[in-house]
Design a protein around this nucleic acid. Structure first.
Ligand SMILES: [Mn+2]
Ligand SMILES: [Mn+2]
Ligand SMILES: [Zn+2]
Ligand SMILES: [Zn+2]
Lengths: 171, 171
DNA sequence: TCAGTAATTGAAAATGATTTCCATTATCAA
DNA sequence: TTGATAATGGAAATCATTTTCAATTACTGA
């Protein structure tokens, strides 16, 4: 018997030695297993949806719709639950752009978008990712983070820079 | 008759020529009048609550409680409505620190807190204002703002920098 | 391989912040 | 002082998110 398999039909060798992406192996399985969480079909589906839309800023419901196309049995509640886990594990970042719902962005994996910050239109909600000056931002923030961590005894996990205003159409 | 008075009992000379603060004259009246809004008792009460708590990060309901102490007739709905106006006028900034409710900070007036950014505990919700490196941050952000405004045709109104992590007690 | 056990799930109900409605009241220009 | 209309507050509606709970499923250990 070359590979054992789980009830999900996932070859364990894939779980243990991820190599590709997209339809293929699952780079994030180790994260789940290490944290004591199980690998389930809904969780796969949700990661897949995030991966296939890594340049967007999907809400929980939008992720649910995305998942629903291929896995109609997955519920919205599970989407919320999985997103919470992913945020806590640091694989996903949760944003609030002021439209009343949380929005999520994949931080890890081969398909993750590179480090960037945001420009948000307060009128229509449009969000632009920008990477201009990102190195300078990163340099300054690293320095600040070091000082603040020590002074305020904070264990800093992440940062966020956001500009708000009116986009071309809205101003 | 030296000064006329409004139905609110506010001497018009105070409205037109604000000079002090706290219990006294109303620096923000011009903002409301210029924007075509009326000066009302609920609005005074809300500005007063924000002014007397400018170092906190009150939610709409907390502002409502604060207002309620002195003006029990003012409703929560009006607090929400007034906050929206204040945010749009740029007198108040709306934050989301991840606890499910918006929080507000006074930006203008003699009692406003100086320009700063935030450190947020994702576990207990504690928020720390920091001003370390604020000049360097401001310098860099101004430069970035100039470039982004032009490149993306955005009319940038404000920015935000936020660090998230665990505070001393929670880590 | 397989059963036992605890984790996970989906649907429905609950929650809670914010918004909408609407009849009444108050501001303020004339 | 008065009239047009902006503003108000309470109740009801909305809507994103959370909770509940009985049924299902993944994984452990034999
Ligand atoms: Mn982004
Ligand atoms: Mn602050
Ligand atoms: Zn816009
Ligand atoms: Zn804390």
């Amino acid at each position: 018997m070359p590979t054992r398999s789980t009830d999900l039909g996932l070859a364990l060798s894939e779980v243990e030695v991820p190599r590709g992406f997209g339809r293929g192996p699952r780079w994030w399985c180790a994260n789940f297993q290490d944290a004591g969480f199980r690998i389930t079909l809904p969780r796969q589906a949700i990661l897949e949806a995030l991966t296939n839309n890594s340049t967007k800023h999907l809400s929980a419901e939008e992720i649910y719709f995305e998942v629903h196309k291929r896995y109609p049995g997955v519920g919205l509640t599970t989407v919320y639950r999985t997103l919470e886990i992913l945020v806590n594990m640091g694989l996903v970042f949760r944003f609030d752009f002021g439209d009343g719902k949380s929005r999520y962005e994949l931080l890890q994996g081969p398909n993750a978008v590179t480090h960037h910050h945001h420009l948000v239109c307060t009128n229509c909600g449009r969000v632009i990712d920008y990477t201009e000056f990102i190195e300078q931002e990163k340099g300054l923030l690293d320095k600040i983070e070091k000082v603040l961590s020590e002074k305020y005894k904070f264990n800093i996990k992440s940062h966020q820079i956001q500009f708000s205003g009116l986009c071309e159409k809205c101003k």
